[in-house]
Each structure stands twice: as C-alpha cells, then as structure tokens.
Write a protein that binds this DNA or RNA. Structure first.
Length: 232
DNA sequence: GCCACCGGTGGC
DNA sequence: GCCACCGGTGGC
C-alpha cells in the first residue's frame, strides 16, 4: 500500500454533495409556486403535475446555521423548523408533489424517501423519528403492553404474527455504533459507481455495508439531535 | 396569512 | 389491506 493521503481525505462520501433533478425548470408557474390552490382551473387533470426530486445536500451538517437569534426555542416548535432541506441526511430524496385536484389543488406536499429501503415519509417529523427509533411510529404501535393474561396459554396456533415484509428484521436500536471507541484509522477506497462510490476500509478489511450505514445513521443522529456539540 | 403536519378516506 | 392523496388545522 502506498497511500499518501495525509490526514484529510476528500469529502466524506456519506456527505455526498447534493444532486438535483429538477423537472420544473422554466418559470411558467407564475404565481402559484407555493402551496396555493388554483381556482377556476378548467380541467385539473393529472397532467399538470410537476415533481421535483432532489438529494439532500449535506453541506452544512457540521455547522447548522443557527444563531442570529439570542434564544432558540426548540422543543415546542412544530412548524417552520427548517427553511430548506438542510436537516435532511445525505442520500435521502425529497419529492415535491403537487396536488392536482380538490380544493387544495396546486398545493405541494413533500415526501421524503429513505435511501436504503426507499421507505416513504410525509414529514420531517416522521423522518427524524425514524432516524432515532429505526422504525416508523405506525409500525411500533403493536408492542403495547397488553397485560398478557397468563391464564389462557393454549397452543392456539399462531395464525397471525406474520406481517408483510414491510419492515423485516429491524432491530429496535437503530444504530450499532460504539461511540466511545470509534475506529482509529479508516481508509476510503473508490469503488464502483453503483451505490456508494467510496468504501471504508479498516486495516485490510473492507467495512460492511451495514456497518457503513450505521456510521451514517450515527452521524446523522448526532448532528440532528445535538448540532451544537458533537462531542459526547 | 402561510406553511408544515397529520388524519382520514377513496381507490386499487 | 395498503397506499396515495386531499382536507383541515395548529403554530408561527
């Protein structure tokens, strides 16, 4: 090996700079660019839909633009938390879907897609919840303490218990990362261009995808939860 | 008033 | 039953 990379590699692959695919290039929208029902539309057929898909651009994950205001009210804020999609972990995709009918036609709904599974989320809240719990709220709704009657313990055949492959083997703790003992040295190797261009290597061993994903999740988790102080 | 969010439902 | 979509509202 003759790597001569000193201490600073290029940008982290997990922070891949944003790539945007925009299908709404021209400004024909005019006044209804925002969420605003169009009125008197002759025929609001589904043809007028414009969808913009973009990647999260992880440029400022390290230093979120938060100051300029003496006090930050955080916990209670539900709306207006993030002006852009800066909070979005890199790799996630955003889709702006324009409503084509109904009283709110012309309104734009945002959907967020998880990079690995393609799971869909409707709001920032849902995404953040998923990042921290490793599951969606709806999915975690079955583990409710049901008193568990020790009486009837018959072998009543377990006909249910087989859910769809909606969320197969998702362990409760979303990330498996030893914050206290991070790897000392990691080499990054340019691999194929299929999924992740860069592959982390410790020693001579390539780091598994799942592990790399955990790193990503851990990083995202930390930066989202505690942007101001990254140390533990 | 604007906007992000979530509930509910209709269609598949 | 699942999913996509729209309606309505609460917070700013």
């Amino acid at each position: 090996m003759s790597d001569s990379v000193p201490g600073d590699f290029l940008s982290d692959p997990l922070l891949a700079s944003g790539a945007f695919i925009s299908s709404a290039g021209d400004g024909t929208l005019g006044s209804s660019a925002k969420r605003r029902p169009i009125q008197g539309g002759t025929g609001v057929s589904g043809s007028g839909e414009k969808v913009r898909i973009g990647m999260a651009n992880g440029t400022d994950q390290m230093n979120p633009p938060q100051d300029s205001s003496g006090h930050q009210s955080e916990s209670k804020s539900r709306k207006r938390a993030a002006p852009g999609d800066n909070w979005l972990p890199s790799g996630w995709r955003v889709e702006d879907k324009v409503r084509t009918s109904g009283a709110t036609a012309g309104s734009v709904d945002k959907y967020y897609y998880e990079p690995n599974t393609g799971r869909k989320f409707r709001s920032r809240t849902e995404v953040l919840y998923y990042l921290q719990h490793g599951t969606s709220k709806k999915g975690a709704k079955k583990a409710e303490n049901t008193d568990f009657n020790p009486d009837h313990l018959e072998g009543q055949g377990s006909n249910k218990a087989i859910r769809k492959a909606r969320e197969p083997p998702r362990p409760p703790p979303p990330l498996d990362f030893d914050f206290k003992n991070p790897p000392e040295k990691v080499s990054w190797s340019m691999g194929n261009t299929r999924e992740e261009a860069w592959t982390p290597i410790i020693g001579d061993v390539k780091v598994q995808d799942s592990v790399r994903r955990d790193w990503s999740t851990a990083f995202t988790f930390i930066t989202n939860r505690n942007p101001s102080k990254l140390s533990l």
